[in-house]
């Protein structure tokens, strides 16, 4: 088990390093942020001076080695634009991203799974058609569109929720829904398929023939056996949520990592972009690792021994 985890961590390390190296060079290939920092009309001499102070006058390889050395000591550098350590920015933003991701996950799991199960059990009936429409809408509406509609309805017309900000629990509601809608639809779809698969199996037929109530079958037997695909999708969806946060956080002025990523990319604040990518890599690798471990818990047939799965 521990060898399995170690191996996975090593793989994750290599993957993250590869991603960061690629990012490092791609960002710098397209120029540096100096011109965005100076006033219009700044002299060539002043531009060169500022460029040198940010270290961009050094050969690319020197810059890269310096970056690796800093990374080795967990030094993420200073923001070019804000002049504060990147760690400060990262640490102040992570809690908001976690809150929003948790909110969206809670919503999509809490509603998506029951809807999926219901759709499987009520196959071919009116309720299934209704939920199918809901799922379809959730899946096909882009977040920037559903988000704007929600702001108009719930903030401007009904005045129930604030349009922007992060100062109360109410502020979290709309961003969570906007972000979670697509994931909700995905969970409903996956749960429906998984349950339908299991419903046709012998043990379910036997249980029903014995007169076990449907609710009990669902809870005691189906839930566990349908869990594997759901866990796989959940792990993948976390990366989707982190990516979707880019739009949702900008729209609702939610101060998470997605928002800071967009701003940093626009401003070419490389150290921040690199830190956000590093966080994203660690988060998605971590989630997949947890999912792998959960397989074993849910299904004892899956064993993590000696690297074999």
């Amino acid at each position: 088990m521990s060898r399995f985890i170690l191996k996975r961590c090593w793989q994750a390390f290599i993957a993250a390093l590869g991603a960061l190296t690629l990012l490092f060079f791609v960002q710098r290939l397209t120029g540096d942020p100096t011109l965005l920092l100076v006033p219009e009309g700044a002299t060539a001499e002043d531009i060169a001076m500022l460029r040198a102070s940010l270290g961009f006058d050094q050969p690319l390889l020197v810059q890269y080695l310096r970056y690796l050395k800093d990374l080795g000591t967990f030094n993420l550098g200073m923001s070019y634009v804000q002049g504060v350590p990147v760690w400060d920015i990262l640490l102040s933003r992570i809690p908001y991203t976690l809150q929003l991701t948790a909110g969206a996950m809670l919503l999509s799991l809490g509603l998506g799974l029951p809807i999926g199960v219901l759709m499987a059990l009520q196959r071919g009936t009116l309720p299934e058609r209704f939920f199918q429409a809901v799922v379809f809408t959730g899946q096909s509406m882009p977040t920037f569109f559903s988000g704007i509609l929600m702001i108009l309805l719930f903030a401007v017309h009904l005045r129930w929720l604030p349009a922007s900000g992060s100062d109360s629990g109410a502020s979290l509601v709309m961003p969570s829904i906007a972000l979670g809608l697509l994931t909700l639809a995905t969970f409903a779809r996956v749960a429906r398929t998984a349950v339908l698969d299991e419903l046709g199996k012998d043990y379910v037929r036997t249980a029903r023939a014995k007169g076990v109530p449907l609710g009990r079958i669902v809870w005691r037997h189906l839930a566990r056996n349908s869990a594997i695909p759901v866990i796989t999708v959940a792990a993948l969806e976390i990366s989707h949520l982190l990516a979707g946060a880019v739009i949702v956080e900008t729209l609702f002025a939610w101060p998470g990592l997605g928002q800071v990523a967009v701003q940093a990319i626009e401003a070419r604040d490389f150290p921040i972009v690199q830190a956000v990518v590093l966080f994203g890599a660690v988060a998605s690798v971590g989630c997949n690792l947890i999912a792998d471990l959960l397989y074993g818990v849910v299904d004892p047939r899956i064993r993590h021994t000696g690297g074999a799965q």
């Binding site: 704007i148 702001i151 108009l152 903030a155 401007v156 005045r159 604030p162 349009a163 922007s164 900000g165 900008t250 729209l251 609702f252 002025a253 101060p255 928002q259 967009v262 701003q263």
Partner: peptide, 18 residues
């Protein structure tokens, strides 16, 4: 001074008095 990147959201804030 609040940081609200989306202009549509800034307008919603104005209309709701936020």
């Amino acid at each position: 001074f609040r940081f609200v990147p989306d202009p549509g959201t800034r307008v919603a804030d104005l209309r709701t008095g936020k």
